[in-house]
């Protein structure tokens, strides 16, 4: 095989990236696969015994795994939809202010600057049944306060906390998409007798469609794999009520010492996300083909 100088140069320039991927991705991936197929604890980490797919069977038969999956899915979908809905509404309503006074953007971005685990810890204090200021004042003013962190309410408390922290992210994406719609397009629509409502639904939202899909996707992924703020706020929660998939993996790894099962669960999570991504890609290709045919 002959290769042109350009090809040789390309390979040379690619080499560091390939080395990086081998060192930082394939080594952990290899270890992951071996552990997932082995009986392994902290004591036997250097000498895993291959046991085939037993770990996967154990994980799939574990009701806690399915509960954690359900929690993560519900949490991911709900927070993604609420964050994007709020972010979109804010981006549209605040755009006259934000585009005129750029500094207000920094104000809106503030929640994103706080580390999620800190957010978890902060709300743990603020909402604490005995020590927290919020339950204290609610009891003082209304005579009663909901138990924010008990098994019934913890899920919704977490949803609100997540939404408060990450709506600004969705807002930022939508703000950029909204202001990048040319003014002349809105003016043309106004000349065409479209009302403000019609302009929003028929012109602006369709033009922001790609951004909306991306924002929903990113926020779903972030919500689905949620760990730090949930861990800081409620841990696995009362009776495992707030055990996300990440927390399930963490707990069976570090607390249960069942490394094989924990890694098997993570492999399952990886496979599930691959299926979802592949499905989305196929769906998009089909839609594109249908559009081209039309």
């Amino acid at each position: 095989m002959h290769s042109t100088p350009q090809q040789r140069e390309g390979r040379l320039l690619l080499a560091p990236l390939v080395a990086f991927l081998i060192v930082f991705l394939s080594f952990p991936a290899l270890v992951d696969i071996v552990y997932a197929l082995s009986d392994v604890t902290f004591q036997t980490m250097r000498a895993p015994q291959i046991v085939g797919f037993r770990n996967f069977g154990v994980v799939l038969a574990d009701p806690e795994f399915w509960a954690a999956c359900w929690f993560s899915l519900r949490f991911g979908v709900l927070t993604a939809i609420i964050e994007c809905g709020l972010g979109l509404a804010l981006a549209i309503f605040l755009s006259p202010i934000v585009s005129r006074h750029g500094w207000t953007l920094a104000l809106i971005m503030l929640p994103m600057m706080v580390a999620p685990s800190m957010v978890g810890l902060m709300y743990r204090l603020v909402l604490h049944e005995f020590a927290g200021p919020l339950p204290h004042y609610l009891t003082l003013w209304f005579g009663t306060s909901p138990a924010f962190l008990d098994a019934n309410n913890a899920f919704w408390t977490l949803v609100v906390v997540e939404v408060l922290q990450w709506t600004p992210f969705a807002f930022l994406l939508f703000h950029v998409a909204y202001i990048s719609i040319p003014a002349e397009i809105r003016e043309a629509a106004a000349m065409d007798r479209a009302t403000a409502w019609k302009i929003l639904w028929r012109i602006e939202l369709p033009m922001m469609k790609a951004t909306i899909a991306i924002a929903l996707g990113i926020r779903f992924i972030d919500g689905f794999r949620v760990f730090d703020n949930v861990f800081g706020l409620t841990g696995a929660g009362a009776g495992g009520s707030t055990m996300s998939l990440s927390i399930y993996i963490y707990q069976s790894f570090f607390k249960g010492g069942q490394i094989g099962q924990a890694v098997a669960a993570s492999v399952l999570m990886f496979l599930a996300s691959l299926v979802v991504l592949y499905g989305a890609a196929v769906l998009k290709a089909q839609l594109d083909r249908r559009r081209m045919a039309a």
Binding site: I185, A188, A190, M191, D192, R193, M207
Partner: peptide
């Protein structure tokens, strides 16, 4: 009178077509 109700049509420099 708002622009839509003046019975005028406008052609813009950037064409301002709806891209979608």
């Amino acid at each position: 009178t708002p622009c839509g109700e003046r019975g005028l049509a406008m052609v813009f420099q950037s064409y301002a077509l709806y891209p979608h």
